[in-house]
């Protein structure tokens, strides 16, 4: 079933805040082998001007992937999750995520199209603090593979 193009431009209500923990940043950094002290040691992060340990660049995907279920599981849009393939991912940072951040995601559908039997869905997630400070904008493009 083709995706409904009338969803383009739709913005969803902000998600519940995600509390960024120091140990979560350390765990994520260790899992990708990122040993820079600023990911692990608050003093090293403070020397760079940050209040607490700094997350690696792709860390926000933990927050945005959970938030994107709002779109992907929207029954009205009708994405078949079993056919979903992650196509593109992009981050535009205002500042890095740091431990102690409380992050809220606002999802917008930027593009919906069908080509060659496959569906394409582009989402933009604006990640900001609960106080409204923008942190990072995140785009994901998904391909919903058509029935062969």
């Amino acid at each position: 079933m083709p995706l409904d193009p009338s969803f383009v431009g739709r913005t969803y209500p902000p998600t519940a805040p995600y509390q960024v923990g120091r140990e979560k940043i350390r765990e994520f950094a260790s899992a990708i082998g990122a040993t820079d002290p600023a990911h692990h040691d608050p003093a090293a992060a403070q020397a760079l001007g940050h209040p607490d340990v700094v997350a690696p660049p792709t860390f926000p995907v933990i927050v945005t992937m959970a938030a994107s279920s709002q779109i992907i599981e929207d029954p009205a849009l009708g994405v078949d999750y079993s056919r979903l393939v992650h196509g593109d991912q992009r981050f535009s940072y205002t500042r890095p995520v740091v431990a102690g951040d409380e992050l809220v995601c606002t999802n917008t559908i930027e593009d919906v199209s069908t080509r060659g039997g496959h569906g394409f869905l582009t989402t933009r997630t604006d990640v900001s603090t609960v106080g409204g400070e923008p942190v990072v904008a995140v785009w994901a493009r998904y391909v919903i593979r058509g029935e062969a």
Binding site: D36, H39, H50, P57, D88, Q89, Y93, P96
Partner: peptide, 18 residues
């Protein structure tokens, strides 16, 4: 990229296609 940049907070924009 951050290792090349020499700082873990230096990335302003980053995107890929899989």
């Amino acid at each position: 990229v951050t290792e090349w940049a020499g700082s873990p907070d230096a990335v302003v924009e980053y995107g890929v296609r899989f």
